[in-house]
Every structure is written in C-alpha cells, then in structure tokens.
Amino acid sequence: MNKIDNLIKMANDISNFFNADPDKELAADGVAKHIMRGWEPRMRHDIINHYQQGGSGLSDLAKMAIAKLIAQTKV
C-alpha cells in the first residue's frame, strides 16, 4: 500500500471507532484529537494535503475530523 493510501486507511479506521458515537460532532472531535496526539507532523501534513485536494477515499467522519484538525492547528 502506498503512503497516502495507508494514511487514508488509518484515518478511516480511526473514524470507524469513533463513529459509534451518535453525536457526530463529538465523534469528529475524537478522531481529530486522536490524529493530533498520535500522528507525526509529516503524516498530518500529508493527510491534510490530501483532504484539501478533495479527500478521495476518506470517510465522511474522517473528512469532518480533518477539517477540525486544520482549524485547530497549523502544520
């Protein structure tokens, strides 16, 4: 799996866990926090770039979370 595909899968997998929360705002916060606290800056930079280019392959919740990530921090 290439690098960006791997990051997309990672973001979607994280989203799958938090998606259990019926409150999608809270779920997206959970995903964003998880990525912020666990991903090295290069990885965050790459997934944000991918999101900004349309975010193909990212789940809806992952997209919501990355939007929050962008709002929270500059990478």
């Binding site: 690098k3 791997n6 606290r37 666990g38 991903w39 090295e40 800056p41 290069r42 990885m43």
Partner: peptide
C-alpha cells in the same frame, strides 16, 4: 512537542526517503 514516528511509519518514511 510533536509525536514522533511509530515503527511502521518509520518504514513508510524510509521508503519515502525522509
């Protein structure tokens, strides 16, 4: 203050020449 790379991420970064 930033988290570093996990082992599998190190492998990906190595193949990415970073």
């Amino acid at each position: 203050p930033e988290p570093g790379l996990r082992i599998p991420n190190m492998f990906d970064a190595a193949l990415d020449k970073t």
